[in-house]
Every structure is written in C-alpha cells, then in structure tokens.
C-alpha cells in the first residue's frame, strides 16, 4: 500500500472519564473498502467520527494524506471527506435534488444561486449511481425509508471526495437495498476512493470488504482480509457469541448461533 489516504495514530478517546477508544493505530488506502465491525459500544461510530474530524481525540491524531487533520481548515476537510451518518435524516421536507446538491457545498455550491454545470453534472451522476433519478423532483417526506436512504447516500456521493465514510448505511434496509448499497460502495472504491464503512452485518462485510477491522473493548481485536479477521478464534471472543462458520462461494459467512456464557 502506498502512502495512506487517511490514518489514525495512537488514537485515544475518553467520554466522561470512560475510555471509548484506547490507542488505535490504523491506516486506510485508496481504492479499498474497509469494513469496521464489532459489538455495540465498541467504539465504531466514535472511530468514524474522529476520521471525519467531528470529534477531537484526547490523545493521538488523525492524518489526512500525511497531514494532521486538525490543522486543516473545514473547507479542505469537507472537500476530502464525505461522511454519511447513521440513520441520516433531514429536518425539512426538501426536494430530493436539493438534498443531493447539498453534497456540493464543499465545492462552493450555493443552492440560492443558479446551479453551475459541474455541480449539476455531479448531482445527476450521484442520482444515477443510486438509481434515484426518477425521485429527483419529489419531496423527501413523500418517499419510503429505503428511497430516502438512497438519496442520503447520493448526497454523500455527490461530493466525489477521495475518502468516503459511511456509518451503518444498510441498517434498517431490506436485503435488496442493502446489496445495492454495498455495490455502490464497491463502485466508489473502484473509482479510487478510500471507503470506510461501519457494518453490523458480518456476511455483507465478508462479501464486499477488502479488509475488515474488528473493534472490541475499545481496541482493535483483528485487522485483515475477511477470512482472517472473521476467523473463529477472533470474532467469537470479540462478540461473546459462538458463531457457525459457513463458507458460501468461497466467502466466509459467520452466523451468530449461541450466546456464550
């Protein structure tokens, strides 16, 4: 791997004196999909928020292409990192196209002015990638949850940033939407972006990620390709669950079977 797109060094996060992340070292390369998995409360979302520059670490730092993220202004950060939060929503019933166009703000777009051609094209591309063109002129409160999630994804894609962070983008989506979302993330990596996605579904992670980072007890429990990171000895201890390890078409598909005592 050449110089990493984004990396964390010795990252420590405390909240109300409790340690949330304890000395995390990770580097993420361009063109890769990395899945971050782990039990609830392991610090997955917190890690992603630090990568997005939304939280300030108690110790350690985040480097964006070798430069400390904290030293970069909000404009450069926004241009470099697209962030799709968990259960993304909007406070107003915006038109779908306006919603997606918000992803162009880091490129200097202003929705109160006439749209520039480059922004209009990027919005159109993002809508096409999520198969949302026919939704473009509808208000988002008239859409189903799955359709809305697609548009939120399009909003993040429209930035066309070199780094794409998504926090549980498939939570509460049906299998068809979930597969489609993962395919979009793979395409984003094929475009050359560094894709980091928090997932709960280990099967999807194994199938679509190049690399899986297992977080447990505020530390990295495993880090590697799916068959290594999801091996029996690793995830059983991390989750406190006995998994059945099945292989489908050569892809490991761990199935949570029984809670350990």
């Amino acid at each position: 791997m050449s110089s990493p797109a984004i990396a964390v060094r010795g990252l420590v996060c405390r909240r109300d004196h409790a340690v949330v992340l304890d000395g995390i070292d990770l580097a993420f390369g361009a063109g890769e999909v990395t899945a971050i998995v782990g039990p609830n409360g392991a610090g997955k979302t917190t890690l992603l928020r630090h990568l997005a520059g939304l939280d300030t670490p108690a110790a350690g730092q985040v480097d964006l292409r070798g430069q400390p993220l904290a030293s970069l202004g909000p404009a450069i950060r926004a241009w470099s990192i697209a962030y799709l939060p968990q259960a993304a929503s909007a406070y107003w019933p915006l038109r779908a196209r306006d919603l997606v166009a918000l992803g162009r703000l880091p490129h200097g777009a202003d929705l109160s002015r006439p749209t520039r051609a480059s922004d209009a094209e990027a919005v159109q591309r993002a809508l096409e990638r999520v198969d949302g063109v026919r939704l473009a002129d509808r208000a988002i409160n008239t859409l189903s949850q799955g359709e809305r999630a697609r548009l939120m994804m399009a909003r993040a894609l429209a930035t066309e940033a070199p780094i794409f962070l998504a926090d549980e983008p498939v939570a509460s989506l049906d299998p068809a939407y979930a597969l489609e979302t993962m395919t979009i993330l793979r395409a984003e990596a094929a475009r050359g972006a560094c894709v980091i996605v928090v997932l709960h579904d280990l099967g999807l992670a194994a199938r679509f990620a190049d690399r899986i980072v297992v977080l447990a007890n505020h530390k990295i429990a495993a880090d590697g390709p799916p068959d290594v990171a999801l091996a029996a000895g690793v995830i059983d201890a991390a989750y406190g669950v006995t998994f059945r390890h099945i292989t489908v078409d050569g892809v490991p598909q761990p199935v949570a079977w029984e809670k350990q005592r």
Binding site: R77, A78, W92, D98, L102, L105
Partner: peptide, 19 residues
C-alpha cells in the same frame, strides 16, 4: 444561507460539509 441549508441535515453532517 448555504450553511443554513447544510444544517437541515443536522449539525454533524453540516460540519462534515464544511460548516
């Protein structure tokens, strides 16, 4: 106005968009 638009996605997302 731009940043008020961004805030319609919540404060975190607005910050990630450069607000």
């Amino acid at each position: 106005g731009r940043w008020l638009d961004a805030l319609s996605l919540g404060e975190d997302t607005a910050r990630s968009l450069g607000a």
